[in-house]
Design a protein around this nucleic acid. Sequence first.
DNA 1: CTGAAAGCGCTTACAG
DNA 2: CTGAAAGCGCTTACAG
Lengths: 336, 336
Amino acid sequence: METGGKQTHKKITLRDISERTGLSINTVSKVLNKKPYYTKEVEQKVLQAISELGYIVNLNAAGLRSGSTRTVAIIFDDIASPFYSYMTDAIAKRFDAAGYDTVIFSNYGRNAYVDEALLRRVLARKPDGIMSFLEPSPETVRLIRRHGVPFLIFGRCGEKYGLPSVHADTEVGGRIAAEHLFERNYTHTAFVGSEAGIGVGEDRLRGYAKVLEEHGIALADTPVLYVKELGYEKVAQELLRANVNGIFCYSDIIAFKVISQLKKAGKIVGKDYGIVGYDNIQSMLELPEMITTIDVGNEALAVGGAARMLGLLQGNDEDVFPEGGIKPFLVKGPTT
Amino acid sequence: METGGKQTHKKITLRDISERTGLSINTVSKVLNKKPYYTKEVEQKVLQAISELGYIVNLNAAGLRSGSTRTVAIIFDDIASPFYSYMTDAIAKRFDAAGYDTVIFSNYGRNAYVDEALLRRVLARKPDGIMSFLEPSPETVRLIRRHGVPFLIFGRCGEKYGLPSVHADTEVGGRIAAEHLFERNYTHTAFVGSEAGIGVGEDRLRGYAKVLEEHGIALADTPVLYVKELGYEKVAQELLRANVNGIFCYSDIIAFKVISQLKKAGKIVGKDYGIVGYDNIQSMLELPEMITTIDVGNEALAVGGAARMLGLLQGNDEDVFPEGGIKPFLVKGPTT
DNA sequence: CTGAAAGCGCTTACAG
DNA sequence: CTGAAAGCGCTTACAG
């Protein structure tokens, strides 16, 4: 099987086009970049030589000189997660349409934040902008400042970092979930999160807690469990021990696993208890309706996020959602 | 004042490190790249200056000179699809560990092949290698050859293109699915694909067809339907009209939609009919068990694909699966 | 062990 | 409208 690996392939550069056409390198460059001015005749010659020699521009070299790589970096925790991959697809598609390529970075679950080491790797590629699903660590914020690169936080609020962000109102999401559980008479509730201290998780928890209060229940008197801390088996044990009948989960994936665990104990979802997830991944994957969940306005979020990033790339710092942000909504499924 | 700190966005380059330390630029470069030889003292000085000034290397510039960008491009059809995003995560993680960053490219569903325009965009970034979930068009193959860049086809056979590939035996997958349907007495079967002419789809269909033949049934006498051609409603109509009771689908996602459509007509899956999907996405997403499906050896495929690509990057053209490839296996679910 | 020079492939002023 | 020169930030020979 041949790969062409070791063969010598002559690299075609502007110099070759220049020699072929008898024009100077910068005239050729001008035609390539459609900069004024050149004659139709020159254009013809250049385009023909390019096609004949199979010239392909080296954008790294171009970026080195021009200062812009026409590249956006996306940072996430876990691209295998449907929420991230769906969003990445929707966003990268828009970058593509605007002439930007996308480089992806992840710390592969090693860290819930963008740490300095990761940001250094990102910056070494000189992207024109960075869009991050993760929040930056404090030192990272300093590095972003110093570097002056546009940095957009996506899906989480950037206010406390003084950085631009596009996100839905997560507290409202938690509120909607809790209200729904109470409406359906699942009033003995618990919250199951990923890990404590994640900003967006805390927001959802807060919205949920407020509804509890309105019903005269203190959050402290109800289970608040984190799967990364306890594991799913222990979480299920706690839920059973507390005799909970309404569960609000940080994500659909967590909800699915909780359902599986409780099933082992003979508990039937939608009958013995109700559960609400988060993210509405079933709609992203075009799966059959599986769960009651909160949709954070996925589509609007992706569109808005891409628009905001492209705006930042042009030095435009205006918020795309001045009206108070995207509103999450409930999607009723068979689990409540 | 150089130590003042808030120098607004002055770019720090090797030149600055050189001036700060009194060493030459190439000595600094040598330390950065750990090339022999330099003294401990010099190393100390350089590392300190780098830390003080917050230097970050420009890998585009480095790549321009060295010829290697330490970058791999991944091309896919649709990163929002769980199969692709899971694989991308598993693969990119391994590239990362080997010191390569990943750039993603897609034609966003516009084309089932890597066309020339897309490959040009990829090559303009000068990746050290390309890994593609999509097969190349004929002109694209020529361009790959001419360019001499390592190009690995992932998930599909590259033999007919003369290009290296890592893939499971898809024909066996189709065979296993069909055998299972017959075993379970779903003997009046149909195939539902994505679109005609996709190599990997044809392979699955062929394996399926062979089993039919062994049971004395000609493929031509059974429905072979493509959703991109007919749409889901028409597909369901055809399935009902032919009074089918066993369905083999090209993917789990297609299977889910077919199940939804047939439900509207009152048909209960697992009772009125059996259905087998492909990809085992439920395991990737950690969803509850939802469907009988074919797992193509996802984990092994990702590990092997990454290893093969990293091998190609080092000029090593050896196949990582000399023993006849990865074997798909059946995952029994509630739909058969 | 360290440094001066050349060059990777472009684009950007600027001169004509 | 076209071209000669400089330079983006590095690494690579090569000289000392």
